[in-house]
Design a protein around this nucleic acid. Structure first.
Lengths: 223, 223
DNA sequence: ATTAATTTTTAGACATGTCTAAAAATTAGT
DNA sequence: ACTAATTTTTAGACATGTCTAAAAATTAAT
């Protein structure tokens, strides 16, 4: 058996991690297929390989769980991905909607020293450009303590801490609206009809749909 | 036909480029196989694919030449490789014998913007940590005008400009000897018997074998 | 100019990762 | 509890890149 992990295997572990991270249920074949833009049959094949390598626990028709070792690998990749994103924005003038695609490639570069030195060079950042936490060297992840903007009540103030949806489209929308991480937002009014929200930030007033407010992590200010 | 170039294809083009760059003859199947640590039969197979894609001119039993397009691709990879090497040494504290392996991976990351921004970030370096020239954006390469240390006469002075052999072993030998790029060297004596050389640098005297002197590019000082 | 040695190619196989189509198992609906 | 719908797996195929062993072509040697 080949002892070296392939990029494909890494991508599967990463996908399974991200799908299992939210809930604590077995990850379904179909959901992995959807995430990776592939077919369920391909996923079944790969899952068997990952299971042979002891990176996932697999019961036919029941889906998979990552093993401890599998989780370790996934987190290591996530760490690299997010560190590279920071590098691209901080030093190479990339915008937050451009970094993902390139980081998807850089995350597969194998070198312990590279990751460590990059981390040090960036001065041990804790969050990537989208506000997502960067796992530390031991794989610990600070989990989002933030809530969604949609859950903030009228007249409350909060700070934008991250995005849940980090698609290019959403990020560009935010750019065009002038909303970034760290922006201080006050909720002025909520429409009962469609849950849209009137907010105030940097002196500007704006109405945002629920689709927007449900995808923004915020930290409420104590009153 | 798949339009995207694979890492393997890139490695073949790079190998052919490096083998053809010195002389202007067709590159043999065997030499490519040796360079890439693979078998001649595999090379034949791949050459056919590269030929279909118009990246090499191939005549059975006669070896290959890169086409203009093939050369362009090879030089682009070389450029990325050397830029990453500079980055690793300059910012991530890598030594010149550590960079190659990691750069071999980084060179395959596809992003025009990444390369351009990296180049700018490094302030448009002209040479990598081994003294090899970095192709510019249009693929122009400043070719070595330097000669080998072995060709320097007695009592002449010169400056170390690059290494021909950039194996880890050789680079570590140089480190332990205190020889680096930019080191000023005076040839004190040459042994007719084995072509070994007594040199003087930084006040120290040292004897080096022809295997060493033949692998060091130098620039002679005008007398 | 033949034979011998070397190089290169072909043929057939295999490993990885993917797919489609069909079968099997699970889940949902009444 | 039994269909029906959905999900998952299997079977067989294909593309990429590799290999070994044998055949074909080239080069070297006398």
């Amino acid at each position: 058996m080949n002892t070296q992990i392939s990029q494909t295997e890494e991508n599967y572990l990463k996908a399974i991690f991200s799908l299992s991270h939210s809930q604590n249920k077995a990850v379904s074949t179909n959901s992995i297929a959807e995430k990776l833009n592939t077919k369920a049959s391909s996923v079944t094949d790969m899952i068997k390989k990952l299971s042979d390598k002891k990176w996932v626990d697999y019961v036919k028709y029941q889906g998979v769980f990552l093993t401890l070792e599998g989780k370790k690998i996934a987190v290591r990749i996530l760490r690299k991905h997010r560190l590279w994103e920071v590098f691209l924005v901080k030093h190479l003038d990339f915008t937050w909607d451009e970094v993902h695609e390139v980081a998807e490639q850089l995350e597969h570069v194998k070198s312990e020293k590279l990751t460590q030195q990059l981390d040090a060079y960036l001065e041990y950042p804790t969050h990537d450009p989208h506000g997502d936490p960067i796992p530390d060297e031991d794989g610990n992840i600070a989990h989002h303590k933030e809530i969604m903007l949609s859950a903030v009540s009228c007249n409350e103030k909060c700070t934008i801490m991250g995005v849940k949806d980090s698609s290019v489209a959403f990020l560009k929308y935010l750019d065009s609206s002038g909303i970034q991480l760290g922006t201080l937002v006050e909720v002025v009014k909520k429409e009962a009809f469609d849950q849209s929200m009137h907010i105030l930030f940097e002196g500007k007033k704006r109405s945002i749909s629920q689709q927007i407010s449900k995808n923004l992590f915020v930290k409420k200010h104590r009153q």
